[in-house]
């Protein structure tokens, strides 16, 4: 209980919002994202793990939530936090078979 108060105070002092953010892992085996569509909340994190045996290049060009992981080697894992609500098209720049929709709710 005490800890919650400390964390809340920290949030208040920094002028931000305190959120309990969830984290979900997305695999890329066989040139496919492990999920075609995920629904998350603003501030949640998707961890893109390259569990395939070739390099991938996960990215999005959706306004407000653009990112580009660049070339991600097998065995690498990178978290991406989405803090704008909306429908985000996530792709692999290399493989057109890799497409997923990330629905970020407010």
């Amino acid at each position: 209980m005490k800890l919650v108060k400390i964390a809340a105070a920290m949030a208040f002092l920094a002028g931000g919002t305190l959120a309990l953010a969830a984290e979900k892992t997305i695999g890329q085996k066989g040139k496919l994202f492990s999920e075609k569509e995920v629904s998350i909340k603003k501030g949640d994190t998707l961890v893109f793990v390259n569990d395939d045996n070739i390099a991938h290049n996960v990215m999005s060009s959706t306004a407000g939530n653009t990112f580009n992981l660049g070339s991600q080697a097998p065995g690498k894992s990178t978290p991406v936090t989405f803090d704008k609500p909306g429908d985000i098209q996530v792709i692999c720049a290399i493989h057109p078979s890799m497409k997923m929709l990330v629905k970020v709710a407010n």
Partner: peptide
Amino acid sequence: LALTFVVSSGQAAIVGETRTVEI
């Protein structure tokens, strides 16, 4: 679950640290 504290108003999603995991 992890607790994330974010102050942000950028136009991009936030990319964190890349780690090595066992596959």
